[in-house]
Design a protein around this nucleic acid. Structure first.
Lengths: 255, 255
DNA sequence: CCATATATTCGGTAGACCCGAACTTTATAT
DNA sequence: ATATAAAGTTCGGGTCTACCGAATATATGG
């Protein structure tokens, strides 16, 4: 009874949101383009666009329509909705600086991971490019860190909903193996990703809990495998991460 | 022919978007709450919410509905849509560190300013709280910096659309005075805000132009008036800002 | 200046949105 | 435990509207 269960939907809203997504995908578009891409009449698209422009979700320059900066405000809201999310930002940055690796803070939503903050140690090239992107929890260090803190029945629900697709040949694709791994993660307090999501990328993750004991998210630090010595991977980075997680939980508990 | 001109709108989309805005305003809500707040029947609200949940714009936990992290992805897209926006981030951060003040990067959309990045020099308290917020261009240093780079007829259009409301008794509320001021700003390359938006807050702003010569946005640095000496306000901060704007334009032109 | 393509407006109808009522579930109090 | 209430959810039906297609306006290039 999970996905798209029974009830009714508002067709017009779905159309408008499809236009929004298509505007992102096409990086701005004209009426006709959208009409063709979505198999709608231009007049229909035009009416939807006018509505979205009025509501400030879309801007029109010439005949090209683009998503507006209104989404910045909405994103800012969802990011700061929980105090824990707000303070995670600077810790992620700190992690990236200390380790000189890519550091991220991720949370779980609907059984999947979402990148909330991403910082790179050195050059800020693809600094923000993955913010908001979703990923499979079982493929990453941060994801497994989060899973380790969830009730096992919830983990099983998530596996049933999203499956255990492989990212590389190292990905854990068996449920019982995953569950055993999560026990180990819970024990250690640290999760590892040994080229399980992407070839050549290793990562370490730690969960962070709220004052109610429930997991809020996870930090992780990733690096190209060839720049990551075994000692750094298994000792040094985990230690840094656990330290930051502790600081975070302390600050978070004081509010 | 500007605001809500003639044409038709999609009523259902407007309703869905009102629900989205209301979810932000109420910081999450139940069906009945929304129905009362928007004067709709609970069944109608329920159908809209189901649609939004399916589309991943809203999440449901228990009987409470919240905006989802999907907006992070959309915001990330609009932020990185223009390369200039993407690289402005680290310069804003740098400004905040160098000046130990609050530094922001803003752009213009539909005749108003939008905060795109905001950093505080010291403690990260309300670090992100204004991202995405809109403001009147004539009341701020960054806003006037942007206006100074726009064709004067465009400025007049903007004034006609949004007026010149006062934020404090120092706000420029007369169009011809504003236009004169913009000439001075263009000459100097720097704009000042002498407690014109908020009592007790001074700021300095500089515009940044794209390689096509059109303004992309503006940086500004703000500080409590009593911590800002005349020399810092009129000399030191402007110099820092102009330097950063130059670096920015250089990097931006190489892509 | 004409030809072409696209944006926008507008009439009419098929169909969907909205309400209200019935039903289900969850919470509270006796 | 049971009753009572309140909220969430489903579903039928009527009205309104979202959609299309054609006509008109606007922009582009030959």
């Amino acid at each position: 009874m999970n996905k798209e269960s029974g009830g009714r939907r508002v067709q017009a809203t779905m159309t408008s949101l499809e236009i929004v997504e298509m505007l992102r995908e096409l990086d701005g578009a004209r009426v006709t383009e959208l009409a063709e891409a979505l198999d709608l009449s231009p007049s229909t698209v035009h009416t939807h666009l006018s509505t979205l422009v009025d509501a400030d979700y879309v801007v029109k320059s010439g005949d090209i329509y683009h998503l507006s900066l209104h989404f910045l405000g909405l994103a800012n809201y969802v990011r700061n909705r929980r105090n824990a999310y707000a303070i995670a930002d600077s810790y992620t940055d700190q992690l990236a600086r200390e380790t000189e690796c890519r550091a991220v803070f991720v949370v779980e939503e609907n059984g999947r991971g979402v990148y909330m903050y991403t910082y790179s140690g050195k050059h800020a090239v693809w600094k923000y490019s993955t913010v908001g992107k979703r990923f499979h929890l079982h493929q990453t260090a941060a994801g497994k860190a989060i899973l380790s803190q969830l009730p096992r029945e919830r983990v099983i629900d998530i596996v049933e909903e999203w499956g255990l697709p492989a990212g590389t040949e190292n990905t854990t694709t068996d449920q019982s193996v995953l569950l055993e791994e999560l026990e180990a993660v819970e024990e250690r307090g640290v999760a590892f990703n040994d080229e399980e999501q992407l070839e050549g990328v290793k990562a370490v993750g730690v969960p962070v809990d709220g004052s109610d004991g429930r997991v809020v998210g996870a930090f992780s630090v990733a690096s190209p495998a060839n720049r990551m010595t075994e000692d750094r991977f298994k000792k040094e980075i985990p230690k840094t991460l656990l330290g930051v997680a502790n600081e975070f939980e302390l600050e978070n508990s004081m509010s």
